[in-house]
Design a protein around this nucleic acid. Structure first.
Length: 733
DNA sequence: GAGTTTGAAACT
DNA sequence: CAGTTTCAAACTC
């Protein structure tokens, strides 16, 4: 193809399509005069200095990528792509004028590489390009800005991102950095906002849809500028709303029936107009487009959505090589790993990489589209059309309102029990609802609040005994009766299902991976660890939604994890093929465990909240060898505490303690919401982090606290027994 | 569209 | 805390 060279350093303000310069090695090259080039040149593969922008994020408590869901991944993927689709001519020009054009070029490159080649070839090509040592540095820098935004740019977090953008931009004195930084989301958002686009609920298309559409419709960069601009406008329109496109959109739409989802309602509020002006407030409100809003006083803890049972799966997620190898089978959940990987690396190294992630991203998205088309057309269509947090229903007998919310049809619950989806979703019933004797209406605000409080307290009290996961007995987890299946996630050992045949991952598969995990543990030659961790059976914190989406998960998954781990150690200068080969070798290498564990630990470190108490090991890592494939450990663990399992245990324990202290109990304990953990960007309760894929598993506080402090809440719990009976409106059965 | 099945929520 | 009932969605016909 004759598209622009991917990573030229365009310092002369030329457009990306002009004067392609694939070789910046010329000593006379003006690029090397630029601060950016000097910066890039100063970068070593491993020890990457933190730029302004990077530093801003390195300091971040890395959003626990474990908690990121495939949906988020979709979103992230989308954001990855966004530069392509949104890379308008003017925008590129602007970047060029600022002295850096990496983003535009990367976008062009990305589009190019993503366009016509058959997948395997394309992947290889991409990967090779990606790991071009020369380009890598650029991409690191590029990724330093972009990738972090990609992942911080969860639509629900756009506000924070936006804020962060400004912050970073103010700090940045490097023209090159500024020029390449975050032209994407925030600008897009601003554009959308400036355009005064409406924020009808129906425009809140799930990102996956956007992603797919954008991806599918996106022309090759430079191919049809006008058309692309037109499409960009469309994209911008959508994204102008996406920021507040709630996790809950998926959550409430995609998931099980009667899990507490009030929090989702809060976080899902598509309140685009005011979004970035109230970073913290948004998540504690309930503005649900079209479905009424439930007033929720007070703030709620962060909805980080610590899906503890994702830890195991997230830690060893497959890396680039794996993606390439297993691309055809990539599952929605596995796809999430691309974003996780990127963020993980960002967090780990403080440097951003990464073209390979970009390549993966493109692949992922494409694959997603195919997958949706091929295997889940019905669901995806349904999902993609989900316009609002109101649950989608297969049945359409209940007329939808303009927002597409079909409402509930409760007859006896009076819509103030979790049976009611509106209530459960934290929205008032309204027009399209076919409910009877509905009390879930603004005029019964008090009643609604009381009932919510009741449920909250009840769930808090009973949470310990609530089961995690589904408990299907007859559906074999193959029907939507199964909440795991409905959420398109596999069952875990935490599920109480019988005869599980969940096509997204059987419980048995999860156990198999867990077994692998245990083997890895044991091979770490840390008896102390094993002994001390016995009490902390991972299954107690087991993923409700294991990332086992493929039928061949077991050993394959384990292998993938090894691949990923090594990939994590990689300085990203190896091709995916090399990684695969070497990984096979590593699999036979007894010495890989230390690396695995170190990497696991690193990954875990990144997956867990960066509360100061969680960062004990972060600074203890030291790079020993730049080569991920040497038999020498790449990173050395200073002590047994660095074993991943110890870390998991400790982290979980601390998290659990904190969660208890903040009283963020998931009604079903399918998820836990870790406390707000020192996020640098944004202090919003849920802003900086993304929820889990399973909407019902999403974070947490089932109800926003009605009282300002925990103590009072506890007291309330004591009184709830009385209030429960006192409440004339809350039907007690 | 009615009836049945299902599993979670609610209750005892 | 196990068992039962209630409930509404999912499913079937």
């Amino acid at each position: 193809m004759d598209s622009p060279e991917p990573f030229k350093n365009n310092n002369n303000g030329s457009s990306p399509s002009s004067a392609p310069n694939s070789n910046n090695n010329s000593p006379d090259s003006p690029q090397e005069e630029s601060p950016f080039c000097r910066y890039v040149s100063s970068l070593s593969p491993i020890n990457i200095k933190a730029s302004h922008g990077t530093r801003s994020f390195v300091g971040l408590s890395s959003p626990p990528l474990v908690f990121k869901s495939p949906r988020i991944s979709h979103r992230a993927t989308q954001f990855m792509q966004r530069p392509q689709g949104n890379q308008s001519v003017s925008e590129v020009r602007s970047q060029s004028e600022n002295g850096g054009n990496i983003l535009g070029e990367a976008s062009g490159y990305y589009l190019k590489s993503n366009s016509h080649q058959p997948l395997p070839e394309r992947f290889t090509t991409d990967t090779q390009k990606v790991f071009d040592p020369k380009n890598d540095a650029n991409m690191q820098h590029y990724g330093g800005h972009l990738s972090i935004y990609k992942y911080l740019a969860d639509p629900g977090d756009i506000d924070q991102m936006y804020s962060a953008d400004q912050d970073v931009e103010q700090q940045s004195t490097d023209a090159a950095e500024t020029s390449v930084s975050y032209p994407t989301q925030s600008n897009i958002l601003n554009i959308g906002r400036k355009e005064g686009l409406g924020d009808k609920a129906e425009e809140y298309l799930p990102l996956s849809e956007d992603s797919n559409k954008v991806h599918q419709q996106m022309p090759v960069y430079g191919e049809e500028p006008k058309r692309m601009e037109g499409e960009q406008s469309d994209v911008e329109k959508r994204y102008s709303h996406d920021p507040l496109l709630p996790q809950s959109t998926l959550k409430s739409n995609d998931v099980g029936r009667r899990r507490l989802q009030f929090e989702e309602g809060a976080s899902s509020a598509p309140e685009s107009k005011k979004s970035h002006e109230k970073l913290n407030a948004t998540s504690s409100l309930y503005p649900q487009q079209g479905c009424g809003n439930l007033p929720l006083p007070g703030s709620k803890p962060s909805g980080i959505g610590l899906h503890l049972n994702s830890i195991v799966n997230a830690m060893p997620t497959n890396e680039a090589a794996t993606t390439g190898v297993r691309l055809p089978d990539i599952s929605p959940r596995m796809k999430s790993t691309s974003s996780e990987r990127l963020q993980r690396r960002e967090n780990m190294k403080g440097s951003m990489l990464s073209s390979n992630v970009n390549a993966e991203s493109s692949v992922d998205t494409r694959t997603e589209s195919h997958e949706i088309d091929a295997t889940d057309a019905g669901n995806s269509a349904e999902f993609n059309k989900t316009p609002s947090p109101c649950k989608k229903k297969k049945k359409t007998s209940v007329p939808s309102n303009q927002d597409g919310c079909k409402g509930c049809r409760c007859k006896k619950s009076k819509c103030i029990k979790l049976y009611c989806e509106c209530f459960n979703a934290g929205v008032y019933c309204n027009g399209p609802c076919g409910c009877q004797d509905c009390l879930n209406r603004p005029e019964y605000k008090e009643t609604v609040m009381e009932c919510k409080q009741q449920i909250e307290s009840r769930n808090t009290e009973n949470s310990a005994r609530l089961k995690r996961g589904c408990n299907c007995k007859r559906s074999t987890c193959l029907k939507k009766y199964c909440e795991c299946y409905q959420a398109k996630v596999g069952c875990s050992s935490g599920c109480g299902c019988q005869g599980c045949k969940n096509s997204y991952g059987k419980k048995e598969d999860y156990v198999a991976v867990q077994h692998t995990w245990n083997i890895e543990r044991m091979s770490g030659n840390n008896q102390e660890m094993v002994a001390s961790e016995t009490d902390y059976d991972l299954r107690r914190f087991s993923p409700i939604t294991p990332s086992l989406q493929c039928p061949d998960q077991g050993k394959e998954a384990a292998k993938s994890r090894v691949i990923n781990m090594f990939a994590s150690c990689s300085n990203n200068t190896q091709s995916s093929q090399d990684e695969t080969v070497v990984t096979d070798e590593m699999l036979r290498n007894d010495s890989y465990d230390s690396e695995i564990e170190c990497n696991n630990a690193m990954l875990l470190q990144d997956t867990l909240p960066s509360n100061p108490s969680f960062s004990y090991a972060a600074n203890q890592w030291k790079t020993v060898s730049p080569s991920p494939f040497s038999r020498e450990p790449i990173r050395q663990c200073p002590g047994s505490d660095c074993t991943p399992f110890n870390m998991i245990v400790r982290e979980i324990h601390e998290a659990s303690t904190l969660m208890t202290s903040v009283k963020v109990n998931s009604p079903s304990q399918k998820q836990v919401s870790p406390p707000q953990s020192g996020l640098v960007i944004g202090s919003g309760s849920s802003g900086g982090l993304r929820g889990g894929r399973r909407t019902i598993l999403q974070s947490v506080p089932p109800f926003p606290p009605l009282s300002p402090c925990v103590d009072s809440k506890i007291n309330n719990n004591k009184d709830l027994g009385n209030s429960q009976s006192k409440d004339p409106h809350c039907p007690s059965r």
